[in-house]
Design a protein around this nucleic acid. Structure first.
Lengths: 148, 148
DNA sequence: CTGTTACTTGACGTTTACGTAAACGTAATA
DNA sequence: TATTACGTTTACGTAAACGTCAAGTAACAG
């Protein structure tokens, strides 16, 4: 339920107190919160759940590109109505390197499963959209009638 | 906890409060549960929330076509990740007869809003699907390499 | 009458996804 | 040095969506 993944980021090489390294962009937790319109609590919660795991600089959490991508994925998953656990499962597929052949087969199964879910969702979506269209048309008719 | 049952807005559409009508198919709660693969608890819960409101025959709940349609809508909404409250809101749009012109404008706004949500969801969906495709392709490549 | 089956209404328990303090650490600034 | 800003962990609170008893009713079989 966790992600091993050792942080390859910055192992405390030379640092000057007044020169924040300009290499690949990094962010504090508040920056992230602002960018993605979520609270810091939420971000920490996702970390607890193993969805993120930022580097640390002392106590502080430092977020890099990888974390941005992950957070984006999480929020997209939420918009699609998946639970955090499900999202964790999906993200595992994104970056699991399937060494064994068994693993590969397993992953292919999960991919197929996931695809089925998404396709069902797409059907639901399209149907809902057409129904909304009908309702709207009805509304506009009514509006027309009243105005005359 | 009670449910004040927020105004059964049957403005226009008539319903017989009590009548042992044998005409259009009716169902008991267990029938419904089986058909839709949910528990009776869930069905009663939805009623508490105002999403269903079946006729009664004595104490027993009797479900008709209208209820079937509603339940289907609820479950579809859930598959799309909406909360029961949101679903209630959507269903209001389905069968609210917007008498006043203000109501009409309000509904059109809500429709537009809802549409935006769904369109966003569709984008998320398509992107996720293409990403899954990429992952799968990668998997299949790996599988090919190993086999040789 | 007794037992079984299906249904009812509470009412408390559980999981998920955070919100909301409380209490403390670190660092720049007035 | 005191304040302010931002960060940390720990922990209790909460709304949603049911699950899970408990206890009672109503109909019917044997």
């Amino acid at each position: 339920m966790n992600t091993p993944i050792p942080a390859p980021q910055d192992s405390g090489a030379d640092r000057q107190p007044e020169a924040p390294e300009p290499d690949s962009q990094t962010f504090g937790i508040s920056d992230l919160a602002r960018q993605f319109q979520v609270t810091t609590r939420t971000i920490r919660f996702y970390e607890d759940k193993g969805l993120l795991n930022p580097a640390r600089q002392g106590m502080k959490r430092i977020y890099g590109q990888r974390d941005l991508v992950r957070l984006r994925l999480v929020l997209r998953g939420k918009r699609l109505g998946f639970s955090l656990d499900e999202i964790a499962g999906i993200m595992d597929m994104y970056d699991t390197d399937p060494g064994e052949i068994g693993q590969l087969r397993y992953m292919l199964n999960r991919l197929a499963e996931q695809r089925r879910t998404l396709l069902q969702q797409r059907r639901d979506l399209e149907q809902t959209l057409t129904e909304l269209d009908q309702i709207e048309a009805q509304c506009r008719r009514q509006l027309g009638e009243i105005r005359e």
